[in-house]
């Protein structure tokens, strides 16, 4: 970063009146930049460095070039985790965002009493730590004393098996929806509130109904917020860790140690001591995440400009 900052780049003529060679701004940026450098840039560089080495029986820790990356790319466990989070996000993210959008549109419709009550109630789970959310749902899913057990007893059958291999991904998806639906709703709702009133008046004059207003004015009007929320949800799905990690204690047969790429990297490092390989897994995962987030953003904004 230092080399980049020394290099003077021709900036666009801004509205700020300070001269480009004025270094005063750095006094404000420096503390953040230093900690940022130490806590983000240095670990990334160190991870890249680590990923080029390997502990070997003969010769100890030695340079292996890109071998770790080649291994990751042909590692069935890594790809099974990657596929799992890909399937997870293709199903969970749309469900969650559509529910958030419905709730936000309802709040914005001016056709509800007690908007403030719904808003705060739906947002409440965001304040619950992911660990606690996973524990509560994990207990409720339990067939020992959970709600699932109660419902099964009531029905006299074993229909609900949320902690089995077959249903575990759905169960995790439900926890994530519960945690973040209200948060995304608030983001959409805040964006809806700043759609200019003239657009609504124009629509009313044109005789547009509620549905027409929603699809022609409201949703296009908050496309930026939708793209951002999608991007963060996609990044969140790829990083899935807390929920499966905590459910693993309750459902050891349904959640493997390589259930998600993140759990795989964690278990490689802290159960297997394979730090070099774990670093390569983390980097490959980071690159894939960043590329997909970027594609989401580019696609979202291109449709906007159509």
């Amino acid at each position: 970063m230092t080399t980049m900052s020394v290099r003077r780049r021709a900036g666009t003529p801004g509205t700020l009146r300070r001269d480009r060679r004025d270094w005063k701004g750095w006094a404000f940026i420096a503390p953040f930049a230093l900690v940022f450098l130490a806590m983000t840039v240095v670990p990334i560089v160190y991870a890249i460095y680590l990923s080029l080495f390997r502990d070997q029986l003969v010769g100890g820790n030695s340079f292996v070039g890109l071998q770790n990356y080649l291994d990751v790319l042909s590692d069935a466990k890594f790809w099974s985790g990657m596929w799992r989070v890909a399937i997870f996000l293709v199903i969970q993210v749309p469900i969650m965002l559509i529910l958030s959008l419905i709730a936000a549109l309802a709040l914005d419709s001016l056709r509800l009493y007690a908007v403030g009550f719904y808003r705060i109630m739906l947002f409440l789970p965001y304040a619950v730590p992911g660990v606690v959310a996973a524990l509560i749902w994990g207990f409720m899913y339990g067939t020992q004393f959970g709600l699932a057990a109660n419902i099964n007893d009531f029905l006299g059958s074993q229909v609900l098996q949320p902690l089995t291999l077959r249903w575990i991904l759905v169960s995790i998806g439900n926890i994530v929806v519960w945690e973040f639906m209200g948060y995304n709703m608030l983001i959409f709702y805040s964006a809806l509130k700043v759609i200019p009133a003239e657009l609504y008046e124009a629509a009313e004059i044109d005789g547009a109904g509620s549905w027409r207003t929603i699809f022609s004015i409201k949703i296009p009007g908050i496309r930026g917020a939708i793209v951002i929320a999608t991007m963060f949800s996609v990044i969140g799905s790829f990083q899935l860790f807390n929920e499966p990690q905590l459910l693993q204690g309750l459902a050891p047969n349904a959640v493997s140690t390589y259930f998600t790429p993140n759990m795989y990297a964690y278990n490689l490092s802290f159960a297997g001591q394979q730090f070099n390989y774990a670093a390569a897994v983390a980097i490959v995962m980071g690159v894939i995440t960043a590329v997909i987030a970027y594609v989401v953003q580019v696609r979202g904004t291109r449709q906007e400009n159509r």
């Binding site: 983000t40 670990p43 990334i44 991870a47 990044i235 490092s269 670093a279 983390a282």
Partner: peptide, 8 residues
């Protein structure tokens, strides 16, 4: 990803 930084 924040967690990618965790190991290093």
């Amino acid at each position: 990803p924040g967690t990618a930084l965790a190991v290093p």
